[in-house]
Amino acid sequence: MNEQALVQIKNLSKTIGSKRIIKNLNLDLYKGQITGFLGPNGAGKTTTIRMMVGLMKPSEGDVLIDGKSVKHNFEESIEKVGVIVENPEMYKYMSGYKNLLHFSRMHKGISKKRIDEVVHQVGMKNRINEKVGSYSLGMRQRLGLAQALLHDPKFLILDEPTNGLDPAGIREFRLYLQKIARENGVAVFVSSHLLSEIELLCDRIAIIQNGELIDIKNVKELQQSRFLFKVEPLAEAEEILTGIGFPVSQFEGGLLVETEAEHVPGAVKILVNANISIFAVQPFKATLEDQFLEMTGGGDIAQAHSK
């Protein structure tokens, strides 16, 4: 990633009372990339996102969006951001269209045509003139997406966006986000607790725990290739495989070997020659969930703080 980061989170900290909720968070987000934001409940995801969009003031540090500081240059920096914070709450007593009209007036130069375009994009054409109070949760999510896209943002922040969407809706939503990231070069930042969803959606994952960023990984890295060897005797086989340079670990009565598929036949040959009985060799794919739990130490909920 050589290009300039679109969003830079710099030394972001938040102290409420005597408790430091967010501790020196540093994170860069890039054009066209979808970054997932994962963490156990109470880890500080929502607080971080609220500081990024100006709903909360950071105690220390700053967020730069396209070089503009959210702290000192709010109007210019936030102009480029589309936000869905948790459930998109709309004015229930107004129609979907009036809601969009309302938000469009708060940005510069959004035409009626643009509103129609976005309505069409999120597939709300038929219901847009009905009151939001009559919408289902899924429709409100669509309207929430529409309001975030109105001003063609360069950066999209979504806090738990798929809450309340049905599986088909989630899929559609995911494909849509991936499309705008790829085609329009939008940087997307998504917090979620749905790990499987994040895995499918994101290019990169940032993991936060107790207000600290503990890891940033590319999803491809996470999906590295590993194979599970069910062999007897275990100790001898481990010695041989380690001896020829494979990273090996014991796992559920077998050996977990980090290697590419092309090296597997060679490894098998060597084991056979050494008189090791091979019962099975299978590709092993740890889910993101396993890794997430591993990294966050079982995902204990961080010490409660008032929300």
Binding site: L55, E79, V83, V85, P88, E89, F103, K108
Partner: peptide
């Protein structure tokens, strides 16, 4: 109370 404040304050308006 409606929660719409989040929508209102994340706009490029002071």
């Amino acid at each position: 109370s409606q929660g719409t404040i989040k929508m209102l304050l994340t706009r490029p308006v002071k």
